[in-house]
Simulated scan of single mutants.
Amino acid sequence: MTIEGGKATPVMTIAALETFLHGAFPQAFGPGKPHHIETIGPRTATIRLDAAEEHLRPGGTVSGPALMALADIAVYVALLAQIGPVALAVTTNLSINFLRKPAPGAIFADARLIKLGKRLAVGDVGLRGAGDDDLVAHCVATYSIPERPAMG
């Protein structure tokens, strides 16, 4: 991670992240899969879920587990964009508040890292429907970052 003007500059591009995620998590990323990286920035990422029939619960709304997975993925992508491809960075806590029913279709998760340390990262995520600024859910997630060998 590099620091420019007090902000962390991503060390991975969207293309590099997509390649890594397709290899590490082919069930969620890659051609024909529902999750897509929209943007990355200094300690931020936006992920889109194309919520289809398999993501819905009775009543025609996007399910809680689908929203939780989307939020978790968004923090993971924001983290990897900053630290590089560390597959074994894992979620240690995730808390989500469901605010209103999201309609089927595109759901966006806007993540930002509010703490990025050597061993822990904490991210804040707002989830919203396409063309809507009102949040459908809000999430806070903590990731454990494994110790990495010293470069030398």
Rank of each mutant, 00 (worst) to 15 (best):
T44V: 05
H138N: 13
L113K: 08
A24I: 09
I47Q: 08
L49R: 14
H35F: 15
H22C: 11
F98S: 01
V90Q: 14
R57C: 09
R148S: 11
A130P: 01
K101M: 03
H35Y: 15
T13V: 06
A141R: 06
G41M: 03
V62S: 03
I3Q: 11
L67M: 14
I83L: 11
V90M: 15
G105T: 13
P104D: 04
A78R: 10
S144D: 10
T91N: 13
R119D: 03
E53W: 11
A16E: 15
L21K: 08
R100Y: 06
A121H: 13
P102V: 01
A45T: 05
L67F: 06
D110Q: 13
P34M: 05
A141T: 12
F25V: 12
G32I: 00
V122W: 06
L67A: 05
L79S: 10
Q82Y: 08
I47S: 09
R43G: 03
I114V: 15
T2C: 00
A74H: 12
V125Y: 11
E147C: 00
A109K: 10
L49N: 14
A69V: 07
A45E: 06
V125H: 08
A121D: 14
G126K: 07
R100G: 01
T39D: 13
V140H: 09
E54I: 10
A15S: 15
D132Y: 01
V11Q: 13
P42V: 00
G5Y: 05
P26Q: 04
L49Y: 15
V90N: 14
V86P: 04
P31E: 15
L79Q: 11
L70W: 11
R100S: 06
M68G: 07
L120R: 10
M1P: 09
R100F: 06
V75K: 09
A106H: 03
D110H: 13
H22D: 14
L113V: 10
D124G: 05
I145C: 04
N97S: 15
E53N: 08
T91C: 11
G129H: 00
K33M: 02
G105N: 12
T9F: 06
A28Y: 15
Y76S: 04
L49G: 15
P104W: 02
G41F: 00
L70Q: 13
L94I: 14
P26M: 02
K7T: 12
R119S: 12
I73H: 15
A109P: 08
A106Q: 04
P10L: 09
P31L: 04
P34D: 10
A141D: 04
A130G: 02
P58G: 07
G131P: 03
D124M: 06
I83W: 15
G152Q: 14
H35S: 02
F25W: 13
A15I: 07
A45P: 08
P65A: 05
L67I: 10
P102Y: 02
I3E: 13
L135K: 15
I3H: 09
R43F: 00
G123C: 14
